[in-house]
Amino acid sequence: MSVDKQPEFWRWDETNWVNRDIEWINSEYITLGIDIGSVSSQAVIMCDGEIYAYGNMRTGSNSPNSARNALEFALEGATMKESDIHYCIGTGYGRVNVPMADRSVTEIACHARGANFIYGPSVRTVLDVGGQDIKAIRCDEKGKVTNFLMNDKCAAGTGRGMEVLSDLLSVSIGEVGDRSFDIEVEPSPVSSACVVYAKSEATALLRQGLNTNEVLAAYCLAMAQRIWSLLERVGVEPEFAITGGMAKNRGVIDRLCKKVGLEPMKTRWDTQLAGAIGAALFGYSLCRKGKSKRR
């Protein structure tokens, strides 16, 4: 008897992209930003402050490999080689384990700078909901941080919780947002967004007779409340932007924005890239200021 392999509902799409219009050979500084998060890793290559290529993939069990894999993924189909890169900055949870990094910068600074680039200089509040932590950042028109808070002790309300829930309920992660609105009455939120209790909370609701969509809604609402309680501490000032993987989940974001009272800004870029873009931009400005020598 053969057992079919269970589909992986939590698995999100890994993406890469190369801008073939850029003549990278003529650019003065080619900088690389690598963001090794707890769940996803991104590599972004910028030529004089413009995005040339990016790769966005899952972090494996080995940080140095994740950094290399993400870079190779970004350079897939590109004419550039790793040796053409002048300067590399590592950021994120695994920033000290990026072998090719010339220096590391905290993800707080990188996310603010990255959001400033992908959403424009009018951004004042950046919320980053990542795989295992939540960052609430206030910044000025240059993307310089003025107030920040990072909660990396407790993973409640983060992407990891959403992965656990989507796996339990057999709903693929990309559908969670839409399905959580396919309900008649908005249920009350689960008592806590704790990832450890996520499965038992959700199972209890299913036993009470709620359907899958209602359980998703109850969990999304609890996560939105959790994120809002952190965001309140730094305060929200327009314009408001959300980065990280959770920005793609309207189940949480729409419920959060109802509490915030602001619409989040839109972008054509992948929101998961913000940290790596910020790192590449720091590399570019450090090179231009002459604080760092090109390789």
Partner: peptide, 16 residues
């Protein structure tokens, strides 16, 4: 810059 170091968990908010 106001740097908030700490965390918020089920038992409360602890920030310096």
């Amino acid at each position: 810059m106001l740097a908030n170091y700490g965390y918020s968990d089920g038992s409360g908010d602890y920030f310096i």
